[in-house]
Amino acid sequence: MKLVLSTSNIMGGGPSVIRRAAFEKSNTELTTALRGNIVESQQGVSIENTDGTDNRTHESPPPFEAWTSLEDSNLFIPAVDFTHSGLAEDRPQYDITVKLFYLPDVPTEQRGAHTREAIDLVLKELHVPSIDLLIVSFPGVAFDADDEEEDEASDDVASGRSSSENGEIDDIDVMLETWRALEKLHKEGIIARLGLSEFGTQRLMKFLPKTSIRPSVDQINVRDCCVVPKPLILYAKQEEIELLTHNDCTNILPRGTLRELLGPGHSGAGILADHEREKGLHGEVEPQWVVKYTAVVKNRGVVENKGYFAVAKLV
């Protein structure tokens, strides 16, 4: 079974979008928003059941079947109503950016299919035929300003020295493989521009010549934005690649976090069971990918819609 988690529009949704302090992990936004959407859906069901009398605080949460939906072995958590458009104005008013996080421990050959799935969900959610920019994040690729200073001939940029957290490293060829799928979506007119994240100069130099649709964006973590090395700035300018900032962490949805979110207990959604005898779904969750979408009204700089989908396999 596939689990499709979603946040719905998190703008105006309260504290989940707010970075409270610098020390907070930047995936807090995703997990808080997912949890918030689950809780609200559960409450919505409670209200309907109790005819508006508000005693939900003392109740146990409603069964997940009541607020999720199962379609073709996809379990939507919570159920998503795609009938309303996510945007108030016409498509040309918006700049729609999508960032797709490929996760570690997922076979790379599935990324093509995952990309299409993710984009389809976003298009369906926002009621649009295309997006302006797709940025992809490969697991384990972390930008390191210091590495940039090293000898240009150094060959181990792609072999793991600049990565830290997740262990798994793609080499350029694997990433290019994925890129072919993105290029295809571009050629179909679904994505106007393609982007990368956390690429340093050397990785870019290796990557660019082998692409047919070149990336027009490279996203760097905001904490490094004032120390971006000069060579990268110059190279990006020369290659007409925009260097943009982000505040996402690469390991955006660890398995443990997801398990906790869906599991039993106080802060869980009550979907996954811990023991054989418990009610709920049984098995291991394997996060597959996460996609973030943002729709900004171009000439006003107002973020009108922002949200996430996260997909996991239950095996």
């Binding site: 719905s8 529009n9 703008m11 105006g12 949704g13 309260g14 504290p15 609200e40 859906s41 409450q43 919505g44 069901v45 209200i47 309907e48 607020w67 919570p78 109503d81 309303h84 458009s85 996510g86 945007l87 108030a88 009108e304 819609n305």
Partner: peptide, 19 residues
């Protein structure tokens, strides 16, 4: 400063989403 928490049941008058 945040909008009131919305509930799914009583939602969705316009396209602007939850709020």
């Amino acid at each position: 400063p945040f909008p009131e928490k919305h509930t799914k049941g009583a939602e969705e008058a316009g396209s602007r989403g939850p709020s």
